[in-house]
Design a protein around this nucleic acid. Structure first.
Lengths: 128, 128
DNA sequence: TCCATAGGTCTATTTAATAGACCTGATATG
DNA sequence: CATATCAGGTCTATTAAATAGACCTATGGA
């Protein structure tokens, strides 16, 4: 345990790979899903909750906040009671749909192959 | 809390959206990164560890195992001592690189805009 | 009077990720 | 001969994150 003047990790964190930075954000449990949900039109908080079905309030709230921070989504509050809040894709968010669609298209085409691979792995694992 | 014959959630879990199924797998902290690392050539475990730098052994092990299960990656063990294990992209894994590259390209182009959005959000948050 | 509403936040519990010790067994070193 | 080293992991203990669900707000309606 020797002391050192500069911790190498601090450098890494100070200048992270831009691609990792972006992928870490959108590549979480829910972001891609929410962005997909917002494609057809502006939606409200509870509407997203219902459509996704198995996300917790807190996670939806956090996910939307991050997407807003990163400029993917715009949040509009109407000062009514009960409150009304609408979420819309920004131009940046909309431009992201293009690569996202490629990904979804790939997933759609290759899902069967993946399921097959899982089964094959399971059966071949009966070597234990 | 009434009893019911069928839990609706069980149906949801039994027949998940194929796209969510796939995206949940690749859309975790490390999978995309590992797939990217394997693009140029076959690599060994510790080689991946070193290149990624901030992944734990256990997570790399788990990530590789899932990628193998899902058919993205092939694992070859050479029965030597000390052991040698190589990881290679399968055809399926390689085909996934195409949409992944789109995503990486987008991230590369739009990273600046995202960083700018974060800063703008921070300053505008001085309304508290 | 008191309940319902939309969009959250707060807290307690469950789950996942990290760090790091430990294991293997053939070869190299002292 | 005893010991240290190598790669590729697994196991355990600690720390961080996700979930579930109570709670809050202020207004309009029963």
């Amino acid at each position: 345990m020797t002391e050192r003047l500069i911790d190498p990790d601090s450098l890494k964190l100070a200048q992270p790979c831009p691609i990792r930075d972006v992928l870490d954000r959108v590549g979480d449990q829910w972001s891609l899903l929410v962005l997909g949900m917002l494609e057809p039109r502006t939606k409200r908080f509870n509407e997203l909750m219902r459509e996704i079905g198995d996300i917790s309030k807190q996670m939806l709230s956090r996910t939307l906040k991050r997407l807003e921070q990163d400029g993917f989504v715009a949040r509009t509050v109407y000062p009514e009671v009960p409150p009304r809040v609408e979420y819309t894709l920004t131009d940046l968010g909309r431009s992201f749909l293009d690569p996202l669609k490629q990904l979804v298209g790939w997933a759609d085409v290759n899902h069967r192959a993946i399921v097959a691979a899982r089964r094959s792995y399971e059966t071949s694992a009966e070597r234990a």
